[in-house]
């Protein structure tokens, strides 16, 4: 089940990056709404890298603060290439607690 979820989220984000439109489930929060845990975050980032090699290396430690929901993750990937400052990190989902 988590494999399906990972694939779906990765698809949604990649589609959004390709079309320039907001991703499906933009406001779905990875932890609170989708039930992600730390291991799933690692898998997700890996899948994104695999599907969009153009994104280059995606170091999770530099991203965890800015990927609370699918929308912010997409924004983060859009700006990553240009290395613009990103929004201040909100409370990290449960990376620490879960």
């Amino acid at each position: 089940m988590s494999e399906l979820l990972l694939d779906r989220v990765a698809d949604d984000v990649v589609t959004a990056l390709e079309t320039g439109r907001p991703p499906a489930g933009e406001h779905s929060r990875l932890y609170e709404d989708l039930g992600f845990d730390s291991l799933m975050l690692i898998e997700l980032v890996d899948r994104l890298q695999e599907r969009r090699p153009a994104l280059g290396e995606l170091p999770l430690p530099d991203m965890v603060g800015g990927m609370a929901d699918i929308g912010s993750l997409t924004d983060l990937l859009r700006t990553a290439a240009t290395a613009q400052p990103q929004p201040a990190p909100g409370m990290e989902a449960e990376g620490n607690a879960a």
Partner: peptide, 19 residues
Amino acid sequence: LWTLKEAYSKAIGQGLRFR
């Protein structure tokens, strides 16, 4: 290994931010 790494990183308050 994974649980040891998580435990250590949580003890220093950094979670996944610590590589």
